[in-house]
Design a binder for these strands. Structure first.
Length: 210
DNA sequence: ACATTAAGTGATT
DNA sequence: AATCACTTAATGT
C-alpha cells in the first residue's frame, strides 16, 4: 500500500483487517474515535444525527476511501459526530487513532490523509447543495441511485420507514413519492424492498438527448 | 388463526 | 410538506 518501508512496516503490523456484514453499525454518534476505518471492500453509509435521534443520509464511503470525519477527530480525541453503517458487506482496515496521528511524520501518509480530506470535502459540498436545493422527490431518487451504486445490487432491502428516517421526511411522504417513481417506471415496489430501474432510466435519458 | 409490521389513503393545516 | 387517523396487505409464530 505504501512505498516507504518504515511506514509500510508500521502499517502492516498495526492495522488489522476486519469484515462486517451489511447493516452493521460501525460507529455511532457520540462514540469516541479509537479506530480509523479504511474501506478495502464493500461500502459504508454515513449518516448525521440530530440531538434526538433523527438521522440524515450524508454520503457513501467506497473502497479505497477512508472516513475523514475520523481523521479529523483522532488528534483531538473527539467523539464522532456521525454514524457509519455497513452498506455492502465490507472488509475494513482498522487503523488505531494514535498511529494515524504519529504517522503524520511520513509524507506519504500525510498525502494520503490530505487527499482523503480533499475528496470528502468536495462530496460533502455536493450533498449540502442537494439538501439545500433539491426537492424531496429528487433527493429520494438521488438517494436510491447512490445506494444502488454503492452495493452494485439494484434491489434495495429497506422499508419506507427506514428511508424516511434517513431522509428526514415522514414515511407517508416517502410512500407517495415512491409511488410516483413507480408510476414513471423508475422503480418497482414490494414489501421491504425497492427495485431501482437504473439502466432503463439511463436509456430513456439518452434517448431524450439529456 | 392471530399478532405484528409495512404500506397505502384521505383529510387537515 | 407535515401530521393524524385509519385501512389494507404481507409476514411471522
Amino acid at each position: 500500500m505504501f512505498t516507504e518501508q518504515a511506514l509500510q512496516d508500521a502499517f502492516s503490523t498495526v492495522v488489522k483487517r476486519r469484515s462486517f456484514p451489511a447493516g452493521t453499525v460501525i460507529m455511532q454518534v457520540g462514540d469516541t474515535i479509537t479506530q480509523i476505518p479504511i474501506v478495502e471492500k464493500g461500502s459504508l453509509r454515513i449518516l448525521a444525527q440530530d440531538t434526538e435521534g433523527k438521522e440524515r443520509f450524508l454520503y457513501h464511503i467506497m473502497p479505497g476511501e477512508t472516513c475523514s470525519m475520523s481523521l479529523t477527530c483522532c488528534e483531538a480525541k473527539k467523539t464522532s459526530g456521525i454514524m457509519a453503517v455497513v452498506e455492502e458487506d465490507a472488509d475494513l482496515l482498522m487503523v488505531p487513532a494514535r498511529y494515524a496521528d504519529e504517522w503524520m511524520v511520513y509524507p506519504e501518509w500525510r498525502r494520503y490523509v490530505g487527499a482523503a480530506q480533499a475528496q470528502r470535502f468536495g462530496e460533502l459540498l455536493e450533498t449540502i447543495e442537494k439538501l439545500a436545493f433539491l426537492k424531496m422527490d429528487e433527493q429520494l431518487w438521488d438517494y436510491l441511485v447512490k445506494r444502488v451504486q454503492a452495493t452494485g445490487v439494484t434491489t434495495l432491502k429497506a422499508t419506507h420507514q427506514d428511508i424516511a428516517q434517513e431522509l428526514g421526511s415522514p414515511r407517508e411522504v416517502v410512500t407517495r413519492l415512491l409511488q410516483q417513481l413507480q408510476a414513471r417506471g423508475m422503480v418497482t415496489l414490494s414489501r421491504g424492498a425497492i427495485e431501482v430501474h437504473l439502466a432503463d432510466v439511463a436509456e430513456r435519458a439518452s434517448e431524450e438527448g439529456l
